[in-house]
């Protein structure tokens, strides 16, 4: 881990100086969503509802960004065609 900033270099006023995208929450996951692209209708509801912004629309498909997915399973539950299954992490 990088050396943490001391008081001399921290920005004034306690404003955050990094974006949370540097913090990977994917390791919280116990179950992993796997999308069956044969079933997926690209309805986008999983993208819309994902609380962790971990489902990304790449322009052609919805793709899971496992760096952030916490494995809550909302996507699988909300998928109208049940194209997402929650698989235990290896």
């Amino acid at each position: 881990m990088a050396q943490q900033a001391g008081w001399r270099s921290l920005p004034k006023g306690g404003v955050a100086f990094r974006l949370s995208t540097d913090y990977k929450t994917g390791d919280w996951r116990a179950l992993k969503p796997v999308i069956d692209y044969n079933k997926c209708t690209k309805c986008m509801l999983c993208w819309l509802f994902c609380p962790d912004m971990a489902i990304v629309w790449d322009g052609e498909n919805v793709v899971v960004n496992y760096d952030y997915c916490k494995g809550c399973g909302i996507c699988a539950n909300e998928c109208p065609v049940k194209a997402i299954s929650m698989v235990p992490e290896a």
């Binding site: 949370s20 995208t21 929450t25 609380p51 912004m53 952030y68 809550c72």
Partner: peptide
């Protein structure tokens, strides 16, 4: 969304969905 990933709300929390 105005909320970036990497936030540490619990898995399954509805609050980030509300914000999103």
């Amino acid at each position: 969304p105005a909320l970036l990933p990497g936030h540490r709300l619990c898995a399954g929390c509805a609050a980030p969905i509300v914000v999103k």
